[in-house]
Design a protein around this nucleic acid. Structure first.
Length: 278
DNA sequence: ATCCTGCCGC
DNA sequence: GCGGCTGGAT
């Protein structure tokens, strides 16, 4: 039975969420700033990553790359060193590419509107909304995995409810004028009180196992490359001889995504891998 | 084994 | 729409 979305139920729901938030709010460094660049950094880092694991990385990043200009002029190696441990390394590269595009096309200022933000690399349907929500208190609904789960559970919707329906419910529920607070409250309610484990509502993204997977080898290889100037493919072939897909397939993927360069070594010493340099 | 403030290319 | 992409925590 779907709880009807009349104004009385909506108001009751908002009160319930804000009451919870008052007693249980989590504290994060990105909640202490409205700088749009800082919010963008945190939102990219938080994609598919538990908030607690992001705190240290976020602080170190803001220490080293305090603004778009600093980030845009860094090397990819510096970026990946600071990103190391967060996972999904392409996010780090895309964040830097964001900074480069912002320097060229937006005069160094992170754009404020979702339609502009979504044109940037690594920023999609969720993040293009969440940045203006948390930086500018914009009245739009940003639906992440927490908020999707809350809406499905509280209003007894089916787990395969289309995204656009969840989105319109989220827009109905939005506490206008308090968008930032509202989204923070929902996040905390979802991750503390209404967990996936507790509700049994499955995540939308299904992931295969990591240990021994293609991504696992890829992560190990990239970490080695970040730690050294360059590596010979030939030596790596021996070291990763147990890789079921063959090392070359992993290398091709890294090259295709622009994280790694593969060139001929000097004096015909075989092929060499290194983190991409401009 | 499953999830976490998703995005991208196909 | 679907598979690939990380790594740490529970």
């Amino acid at each position: 039975m779907t709880l009807s979305l009349n104004s009385r139920n909506i108001e009751r729901f908002r009160q319930q969420i804000f009451d919870f938030y008052q007693l249980n709010r989590r504290s994060f460094p990105w909640r202490e700033t409205t700088d749009r660049y800082a919010v963008m950094v945190s939102e990219i880092m938080l994609q598919q990553t538990q908030a607690d694991r992001v705190v240290g990385k976020f602080l170190a990043w803001m220490d080293t790359f305090p603004d778009t200009e600093t980030l845009a002029s860094a090397t990819l190696r510096e970026v990946l060193i600071l990103w190391s441990g967060l996972g999904y390394n392409s996010r780090g590269q895309r964040l830097q590419n964001c900074a480069k595009v912002i320097m060229e096309r937006f005069d160094g200022v992170v754009p404020a509107r979702p339609e502009q933000l979504i044109t940037l690399p690594g920023i999609g349907e969720y993040t293009c909304r969440s940045i203006p929500v948390f930086a500018d208190n914009l009245d739009v609904a940003a639906v992440d995995t927490n908020i999707r789960r809350i809406i499905i559970h509280e209003f007894s919707l089916s787990e395969d409810t289309p995204k656009r329906e969840i989105q319109s419910v989220a827009e109905l529920l939005l506490a206008k004028g308090r968008s930032r607070e509202w989204h923070n409250a929902l996040m905390d309610y979802g991750s503390i009180n209404l967990t996936s484990r507790r509700t049994g509502i499955r995540s939308l993204t299904k992931q295969s196992k990591f240990q021994g997977s293609k991504r696992w080898y890829r992560g190990r290889l990239l970490k080695e490359l970040v730690a050294s100037e360059s590596l010979f493919v030939e030596e790596l072939e021996e070291k990763y001889g147990d890789c079921p897909w063959g090392l070359q397939g992993i290398i091709d993927g890294l090259v295709r995504e622009g994280l790694v360069d593969e060139d001929e070594g000097l004096n015909g010493q075989g092929r060499v891998l290194r983190i991409r340099e401009e």
